[in-house]
Design a protein around this nucleic acid. Structure first.
Lengths: 208, 208, 208, 208
DNA sequence: GATGAATGAGCGTTCATTCAT
DNA sequence: GATGAATGAACGCTCATTCAT
């Protein structure tokens, strides 16, 4: 077996270029979304800003919807990566410290790109491919349920599915509203207060 | 001089006609929004479905935005009326029963026209006149704060503004998600379970 | 023959009212034309400003064109009255003094309502009933030809029709351009200079 | 390296195509303006007649106004080229022969496309970008002033600016009216008579 | 592949005109 | 007569998408 000098084989020139084009398009769309709004994110404008032709845009994305979906996906993934990073080692934590970590993670998630988050939440119509925008919520519920599972001893008897729904919905709403609709109300300091309250809310609900 | 037997004089023919046209337009818009989505709610289509001419639409609404805003307003008001009705006598109730009533009211509010609610929440871009779509949330926070004020004795020491924010956000999210995103999960029966859980969540958070 | 106690019999109430409505409509149109431009002179807007209904507008004017034509006619007549007044006794004058009077009269004519004049000349498309906007020019040529006729002794031998065309065109152009396009160039004082030059131009051309 | 025999490289296919589209649009607009009038020159109709789509029209002209302005500009430039051609060597001419040449040039200018000229003068509202329609007149005054400057010896003492204004206004009016409003009166023969008269008018006014 | 000129359905909106009251 | 709500053809314009080069 010949020694594999490169574990991550260099992409072919073509692949690299393709990748760069796709990235430029997604990036351009995100920028326009944030700076000029969804209404101004026409495919021609996006292509312009990305420095490619409209034709190329359609080479990589079959429709405008697909392009926007890619932006949303990329954003969602960034958030997930951030949140996951915050959640390392959470299984070992007590219920209370675990919940607090989860809430801190949710807040961090909303800090990834709050302006894009706002546009995604408020300007992009959830239709067709964009329906699933709220899908990440379902994943969060599942994950939280697992967390509850592994902390059964500390919590009172309850329907874990229902409880996961209750907790995740509350945490998401608190975080989302605080960051997007009440940013003026919540200074960085007040944000900690919010995290405390949210923790109390959730833990009080779950604990024996 | 003949006695005018009617104190509330019959509306003039013109007023009646105008009112009917306005109603037809708002109704048509709501129907299209629900059945065909925001994208298909073009002014010409709305006028068609309302059985009037585009010209008439613009006689009463200066722009498409204003028309949609009227639909949202009417929907919001319907919800408010429903909620208010559910809330009669709430001041006399204990904290726990009051909170339960509030949650029940929120659920009823979401039952007014869930499909339109979904479209308003997910398809209508919050831009221009439509920015204020989430304003009712602020009003709810204020109202809830008053409720807390009048139940000071029963609740632990806390920042009432913050607490109101936490509670209202949670209740809204729970209700909204249950009705709109997890309708399949929640039977009427399960909905009661949800109300119970929500009550427990909020009361547990507030109580001494 | 019964004594006619009133030479100008009072108009019937209906006639008076009609006349008032017609006047109000023409006046409103003129105002809008001047203040907001031809594009904004919609029939509805005119009726509004005139304080009558669109329906009434169409009672008196069969079309928007007819309404605008009435405004133009009224303006033209005002000018003609002004000009005629300036021209009294002109037959008795020498060629030179007569020409000077004519030019002064043309300038006065342009002073009647320069802003309306500008709109008529620059914004109203000369189409249909409005074609004849320049007709007054033809009348002026005829009148000037008569003036030349009565001053035959003082002028050299020439084709009077052609001469009248030359003189009237020149005088009108000079006056019009001075007032409308070079208002900044011509102070009241400079306007006299212009009258002098115009007189010299015309007299020099006609004299023996 | 092969020698590039062509200094003016062939236009790229794209450039040629673009140019053809632009030309077709301007040409179609001019035709419609002449044959059907300004009111019928809707952007859709223009595109139709040009054999392109409305979209293409807007690829090259940001607004209807810009399109019409382009037509007017092209027409004005054609006239200027014609006039310039007629004016070659005018500096060497005597005052009288120079003026005659100028007048002949003005007449030729009006012969370029009299019907379009009429539409430009009478149907196109001077608003926005179209305000400057009469700008060429100012240029003509400046040019004429230079002519007067170089013939100072032959002319009497006078304010050259004022004189230029007087002469250019008169010549333009005579030419314009003769061609556009009195075409029936002026046969080709009579046109020469007009040129004679105009020359006499202007020269008589300027000469010592 | 990449380009960008071309497409055209469809949008929001206006306004001269009509007609039931 | 007067009213003004109603009409609807038509307008200027946009933009997701296609396709010849």
């Amino acid at each position: 077996m010949p020694r594999n000098t490169r574990l991550n084989p260099r992409k072919t020139a073509g692949q690299e270029r393709s990748r760069a084009t796709v990235d430029a398009l997604i990036e351009a769309t995100a920028r326009i979304l944030v700076r000029e709004g969804f209404d101004r994110a026409s495919t021609n404008h996006v292509a312009d800003v990305a420095g490619v032709s409209v034709g190329s845009l359609y080479q990589y994305f079959p429709s405008k919807e697909a392009l926007v979906a890619a932006v949303v996906d990329r954003h969602t993934q960034k958030i997930q990566r951030t949140v996951q990073a915050e959640l390392i080692g959470i299984e070992a934590e007590s219920l209370e410290r675990g919940v607090r970590k989860l809430i801190a993670a949710a807040i961090e998630g909303h800090r990834v790109d709050p302006k894009l988050h706002a546009v995604v939440a408020e300007q992009i119509p959830r239709v067709g491919k964009l329906q699933k925008i709220s899908d990440s919520s379902r994943a969060n519920i599942t994950r939280f349920r697992e967390f509850l599972d592994s902390h059964q001893k500390e919590i009172r008897t309850l329907d874990l599915d229902l409880a996961a729904f209750v907790c995740v919905s509350s945490i998401e709403a608190l975080t989302h509203n605080a960051v997007l609709h009440h940013a003026e109300t919540f200074s960085t300091e007040a944000m900690h207060g919010l995290a405390d309250e949210a923790t109390r809310l959730i833990v009080g609900y779950l604990k024996k």
